[in-house]
């Protein structure tokens, strides 16, 4: 009798382990999950449209001090221009919910782009947070690189020093830049997962 109850308990434990294993988010080396969203020009943008090109996803929130660190210093814009120069598609994603910090209309987003001299390929508005949840985006900034085959090649921080101080950018290891150069050159990304840092995404 005791043994039968024990078996039930084991079965119960197994069931729970299996159900938690299915929660996994995106993984480096695996196909990046497909998505489509509306950009600030009102156009539908789908990841599969860019098959064969390298794609960068940048989660952003213009009022977050960690995002400001990289925009006020011109660091993020520099990344975007380098990417454009290499034929890389750069999609900035705003997953702030309406009423939360960083939520903007299409016009406001375009104005921010102009004002800051930013150079993304497109800015995707994701107020419902679908794309953010799909990729497990947690911070602003949070960076993802998808290679030409549509596989996720990098996820993590923009660089290595967790701070809001622009003075740290020069000392930091520029994880995203290094990974992007490796992906563009067709090399294996050495540091494919790093710690993303910043404010929480305001879902």
């Amino acid at each position: 009798m005791g043994i039968r109850i024990r078996e039930q308990v084991v079965a119960m434990a197994l069931g729970i382990v299996l159900s938690t294993a299915t929660l996994a988010a995106v993984n480096v080396g695996q196909p990046a999950p497909g998505f489509s969203g509306i950009d600030t020009r009102g156009q539908r943008i789908a990841l599969e449209d860019y098959r064969g090109q390298v794609v960068v996803l940048e989660w952003t929130n213009h009022d977050c001090p960690y995002v400001r660190k990289h925009y006020d210093s011109g660091n993020m814009q520099a990344h975007q221009r380098e990417a454009a120069g290499n034929g890389v598609v750069w999609l900035s994603v705003i997953s702030s919910a309406p009423g939360k910090q960083g939520h903007v209309t299409a016009a406001e987003a375009d104005e921010l782009t102009a004002q800051r001299g930013a150079a993304p390929t497109a800015v995707i508005l994701d107020p419902a947070g679908h794309i953010g949840r799909l990729y497990g985006a947690r911070t602003t900034p949070h960076m993802y690189i998808i290679d030409r085959d549509g596989a996720l090649a990098y996820m993590g921080g923009i660089d290595s020093i967790v701070s809001t101080d622009p003075a740290d950018i020069a000392q930091a290891t520029a994880y995203t830049r290094i990974a992007l150069n490796e992906v563009v050159a067709g090399k294996t990304v050495q540091r494919a997962v790093t710690r993303p840092y910043g404010c929480s995404v305001k879902y």
Binding site: I5, R6, Q8, V9, V10, M12, A13, I16
Partner: peptide, 28 residues
Amino acid sequence: PPDTTGPPGPGIALALAFAFLGGLLLNL
């Protein structure tokens, strides 16, 4: 080793189902 003694945490449907089975066994 497989977890043999500790009943796991949440999982109310399973817990109820096994309690029901346990009740059936009590008849014996």
